[in-house]
Structures are given as structure tokens and as C-alpha cells.
Design a protein around this nucleic acid. Structure first.
Lengths: 252, 252
DNA sequence: ACCTGACTTGCACGATATTGCGCGTTCTGA
DNA sequence: TCAGAACGCGCAATATCGTGCAAGTCAGGT
């Protein structure tokens, strides 16, 4: 990883998200935080960012709605993302489902991690473009713009031809009694197919998803291997999951 | 291994990957790093790369701030995009190839145009998410992060199952004598398949692409229906295209 | 055949850049 | 106010760089 290459990457991330976190960059590039700070200092010296405690901000305060929206994501979803990234081992093959949380997870995967990602979300593929050791396979099909995912029979068939070590599932609702459920029949079918083809199931969920249900079943609670939740999730519900044998990770 | 041969190889690698590492090149060519550095110095002298500690980067790929690059895009590419959008009729099915120009075109398509878009570029699908009347079909397969496109046999097969009215082709080079050509063998094969399956061929090209050639043929000049160029394109070359029966549109 | 000069290459060596770590300081949130 | 996180600085280890130099290659001329 060349120094200038890191600078370029930081510049891009600043332009896209409006901010960068030093610890996160260190993880992403697999270098020490000292070096990250040096990079940020250098960029700040030429006016390409503003240094703040914990990282740096884009010099132009506001680039519009995208930066704001991403900022809101970064708070709760990025901490989920870091925990999920820790569950991924090198050389594994993983399904990454659609959804804004999963997009954040894809972005947070260590930049040099050597894995194979299979995804039906075009945005996830795009986000992984600067992960040089990540082989990305796109599941094609009818693109649903509400979900940001490829659905339909074509996608289903493609999924059924892949077997993955891990599935990172996008969730509409997750409840101890009914398991994972989805708002849409077709979406649910795609998700079920991915569950079917995966050895382990990881379910990242923000607090608002915990304890809620949706009409279409995706997977029983017993099928969940890892549930990753934010720290503001309901403690009682979490304990119920634990009692049912699910490994629950609480993101800080 | 001749010196110029090495230079060509480095140029190609820079174009494909955006960076080269001195130590890797030394290993690859089985020569000393000194010689590699001499090569990089020479290329940097004529502006074909930027030297950085550890290797070299593409001279001005997509660096700087994204805002800058988008600004530069908007100038020339948006005007291309508007012309191309005018060639699309409602209810048509079109292939949209990968490439930054095509991404700009997708974004510039009228927001409520009722069309079906088939694309092997995840970024194009994402860009079309807010076009409510646009049905989008994604071509899956092995994702090539340098091109931002899905390639490989899977993509090829998917393409061969679709017949489109129009193909908006991403170009590496377009020349009156050799037609459209691409930098990469596999990329060229995908493009040829799309040409094969399309009734009409639209080639948008910024001025720097006009009159240039790349190693792998995609389509003869006679196959081009519409060539859309920016107004700073070479007038003589444009006239040659017109003389060969190509409809040339000059974007204002 | 032999020489010559231009060019290329690898090596040695001193100079410079980058990186991670330790340590004391500063900042932030409870 | 206090603990912990983030920070800056200096240092030592390493990696990379530039330059000078000698050996090797090769085409062209004698």
C-alpha cells in the first residue's frame, strides 16, 4: 500500500462521506494509527481536510444531503460493521445481502482482506472496488430500486449455484419467536435461497429491527449463528436470543 | 526484455490498475529495482506517471477531489449525456456498458423516461435507482473493479440472452480506420457480445478517445450508427467518420 | 576481425522517507 | 474532577531513492 495511494483513498472517502475516523482507517489499511494521523496531518497541511479529535472532516462543511445521510449511518451502523468484519476470516466466501447496513459493512471490511464476496446489491460491488484482494461476484437479475437489490428468478438461479461460508443478511425484522422476516415476498425468497446456500448465518441489526416482525419468513431463530446488535437494543430480547443458543455481539 | 517493451507493459499496468510497485515490477521482469526506477523516472519525465515512494501512480486518474472530477465531468460528459439521451425513445430496451461517461449518461437520462436498461455496470444500476419508470436488469458475473463492470463467461451468457434496441457503448478508443477498440481482451469480448445483441449502436466519446486505438477490436466503423462527440474533437477525424456513413452528433 | 562509442544494466553507498513504538501531554465525556 | 482515548514528538529500524561507476551489449565503421 503506497503512501500516496492511501492519501487518494482518504480524499475519496472524505468527499463521499464528509468525515473519516483515524482508528477505522488504521484497520482498513492495516497500518498503525500513527501513520494515519501522519496522513491526515499531511492532507490538512495542504488544506484537503480539517483535523478533529478522532479523525478528520471535509474542508467544505457540507456537500449536500449525501454526506449528512452517510453521517447518520456512520454513527450506529459503522460500529455494527466493525464487529461483523471481525467475524470474517481470510479466504472465505461470503454472501452479502442488500441494505444500507450491509453497505456500511462492506465499506468497513479491512481493505486488504482476501475474500470472495457474492452479492445481489450493485452498491456493495461498487463499494468493494477498492479492495484489491477481494474477488467480487455480482448476482444479476431484475433490479429493484427500493431495495437496491437484484431479485427475480434469474437472481434466484444464480444464488443456487453458489455455496458460501458466511451469509451477512439484510434484515427487515428479527424476533426471537419468529426469527428473521422480510417485508416483501420476492425479497424473502431471495434471502431464503441465500440462507439455504450458506454454512453460517450472520444477522446484523440496528435496535429498531430487534423484536419486530414482517409478513414473510426468512429464517428461524435456530438458524442464526451470530446476531450483531447496537448497544441500545432491548436487553430482555437479547437475553432471549442468547437463551435460544444464538451468539449475540453487542457493538460498542 | 527490451526497454520499450517494459515501458509499454508499465503503461498498460498503470492504465489497468492505477498504480505500480517498483519491487513487484523488478520481480516481474526479473531485473533490478534500479532499472525499474529508471523506467519510472523516464515515464514520469514525459508525464505518463506520477512517481511516489515505493512505485508510481497514474498521472491524474480519478484523484484530486471527487468534486473536482465531477466538475470536470459535468462540463464535457453531461453535454454528451444529453445528446445521447435524445437518441433514446420511450419503451426501448437498451444495453448500457460500463465507463465513467456512460455512468454520467445514465444519470442524465430523463427521470421519468419509461425504458428498460440492461447493464453489466453495478454503478449504472445504482444511478438509475431514482428513475421510477426505468426497469433495470443487471448482468451478473465476476466483477472487475478496474473497469467497474461484470465480465467473464457468466456475464457473457447473460448478455447473449437479451436483445436490445440500442447499445450505449463505453469506449477505450474509436478511430475511423479500425472502429471501436478496447484495452483488455475480456472486456472486448463482453462488448462484442453486446454489439452482437443490439439493433443500433451508439458510441459516446470524449475528445481524447477520438482517433485513438487499443489492442482489441470491438466493432467496425461500419457498425456504428451514432457517434456522439464533444465539440473539441478533431474536425478532420469527424469528417472521416461522416464520409464513412456514420451519423455524428457534436455535443455543444 | 577488431575497434569504438552509445546505451543499458547491476551494484555500492550515502541520503532520504516511511513506519511503529514509547512516553508524556491534551482532549473528551461521564 | 477523573479515567480513558487520542494526540504529538522523538527515536530507531527499515525501505526506498539517487548517483557514480564499472561491466556488458550491440550496431556501425575501419
Amino acid at each position: 500500500m503506497l503512501t500516496e495511494e492511501r492519501h487518494d483513498h482518504i480524499r475519496r472517502k472524505l468527499a463521499a462521506e464528509g468525515k473519516v475516523v483515524a482508528a477505522e482507517l488504521a484497520l482498513e489499511f492495516d497500518i498503525s494509527e500513527d501513520t494515519v494521523r501522519r496522513d491526515l496531518r499531511e492532507l490538512a497541511r495542504v488544506g484537503e481536510c480539517r483535523r478533529v479529535y478522532g479523525g478528520a472532516l471535509s474542508p467544505a462543511p457540507d456537500l449536500g444531503s449525501i454526506a449528512q445521510r452517510q453521517g447518520a449511518l456512520v454513527e450506529s451502523k459503522l460500529s455494527l460493521a466493525r464487529v461483523v468484519a471481525g467475524l470474517v476470516a481470510p479466504e472465505q466466501t461470503l454472501f452479502v445481502d442488500a441494505g444500507s447496513t450491509n453497505l456500511a459493512i462492506a465499506q468497513a471490511l479491512p481493505r486488504d482482506l482476501a475474500i470472495t464476496v457474492v452479492t445481489n446489491a450493485p452498491a456493495v460491488a461498487t463499494a468493494l472496488a477498492d479492495h484489491p484482494n477481494c474477488r467480487t461476484m455480482v448476482i444479476g437479475g431484475q433490479f429493484n430500486s427500493d431495495k437496491g437489490a437484484c431479485l427475480g428468478s434469474h437472481a434466484l438461479r444464480d444464488i443456487q449455484r453458489v455455496r458460501a461460508d458466511l451469509l451477512i443478511l439484510g434484515t427487515c425484522g428479527v424476533d426471537p419467536r419468529v426469527g428473521v422476516s422480510a417485508l416483501d415476498a420476492e425479497e424473502a425468497e431471495i434471502k431464503r435461497a441465500m440462507v439455504e446456500q450458506s454454512r453460517q448465518l450472520v444477522v446484523p441489526a440496528t435496535a429498531d429491527k430487534i423484536g419486530t416482525t414482517a409478513p414473510f419468513d426468512v429464517a428461524d431463530t435456530s438458524r442464526i449463528d451470530h446476531l450483531v446488535v447496537t448497544k441500545d437494543a432491548d436487553a430482555v430480547t437479547i437475553d432471549t436470543f442468547r437463551a435460544l443458543g444464538v451468539t449475540v455481539h453487542v457493538a460498542p
